[in-house]
Write a protein that binds this DNA or RNA. Structure first.
Lengths: 219, 219
DNA sequence: CGATGACTTGAACGCCATCAATCGCTGTGG
DNA sequence: CCACAGCGATTGATGGCGTTCAAGTCATCG
């Protein structure tokens, strides 16, 4: 709600195209709504206008791994193949801008800079999941939660702390932990270490008091 | 040694360029040699001709996460930015084909199909690490080892089983486990389940007797 | 208010890590 | 030719971190 939109210049190129009303439209997704499912045809790509989206994979018994959270300004659902590789769901009431994949492909055919832009965005995703792989494979629970807080603090910066759109369970499924472990780590950072502060009645409005403390824990 | 080279048609386009002796050269790396380091300038991209390479990230205290193994035919070291995001080392005595990144960039400027090829390869990497994220975040040790065996069985298929080029420690650092846990899982699949067989005196020549059994364990 | 859902906190368990011993193979030097 | 060091791998014993199970708190909403 108080989160600044992403104004990364790398996305501007694509947004120039995306901004063209002839090829895009907006749509509203209530909290919990599915945007697309894993292995469904990838007919559109999406940009978050307002709200937040999670992308996840499921195992057959219900275990879930969230690969990324998409915040205002972020583009997601960009596939090179014809099918989505994640399921995407709105975390909160969300507005998305949609662009037909077909029209992107058409532009890409004649515009090398557009293909470049796609490549750059794909590489950015790659870099994010590569770092996340290190977190999931080798970091302790405290390190994971500290890294999460720093990531969100960077991406959601706003006056008076960040407003996390996701539940403890979502955080846990992003970090490869249980929601109880996430909760314990947050309590520890708040009470024992004094790195955090919760604002208001909810437990999702968080102020990071000592980023350096978190950064130290995150190795 | 008995592993068939990768002949994926998607790589052919790039290999057409890579095959040009004017822009490439070969180099030998003895077992253990560093190909490039994390955060070093990315001046070349590489293709495995013979041998095998591992790509990893390190935490400050030495914990290691291997992101991928590169086998004959595979291309790696392709970055969009100017710096490598992994350290790459030869697992066995290895021959690599090198291509100057600059000459790739030059071709890419005028050849949209080349940019496309780069995008496709980047997307393939992305898909691999996305699946690996699910493994690292949510799978049990048995599931991880089963998935590893199936992956290597697919990529190293040869008459009379596969010859793993990597040590138990490498496997462990790829799967986010310890080498002891990997060893126990392999023993279990061999003795208790009868899914595996070791050939010869070494413990790296493995025959998968029942892929279906491994697939079932891997969820 | 009572119901519900998100979160926190406590207690006990279990999977995997850690520590440690041993085995088998290879290579090396006396 | 044998002793032995060294390395990779296996196997056993123990321990700890995060999970699981469970109870309780708090805010929201009918």
């Amino acid at each position: 709600m108080f989160n600044k939109p992403n104004t990364d210049p790398k996305k501007s190129r694509l947004l120039g195209e995306l901004g063209d009303p002839k090829v895009n439209s907006k749509a509203a997704y209530p909290k919990g709504a599915k945007v697309f499912g894993e292995a469904e045809p990838a007919d559109y790509i999406y940009q978050v206008v307002e709200g937040a989206v999670r992308s996840h994979k499921l195992l057959s018994d219900g275990r879930r791994q969230i690969g990324a959270f998409h915040l205002p300004g972020d583009i997601f659902g960009l596939e090179n193949g014809d099918f989505h590789r994640f399921t995407a769901e709105a975390i909160a009431d969300t507005t998305l801008r949609l662009v037909k994949r077909q029209s992107l492909e058409r532009v890409a055919k004649t515009d090398p800079a557009m293909v470049r832009a796609l490549l750059t965005m794909t590489t950015d995703s790659l870099q994010h999941v590569e770092n996340h792989m290190l977190l999931l494979g080798r970091k302790t629970s405290r390190e994971r939660v500290a890294a999460f807080l720093l990531e969100m603090n960077r991406r959601l910066t706003a006056p008076g702390g960040m407003a996390l759109p996701m539940s403890r369970r979502d955080i846990a499924d992003y970090l490869g932990l249980t929601l109880e472990t996430v909760s314990r780590a947050l309590s520890e950072f708040k009470r024992r270490k004094g790195y955090l502060m919760f604002l208001g009645s909810t437990q999702r409005q968080i102020v990071v008091l000592k980023p350096a403390g978190l950064a130290e824990i995150d190795s």
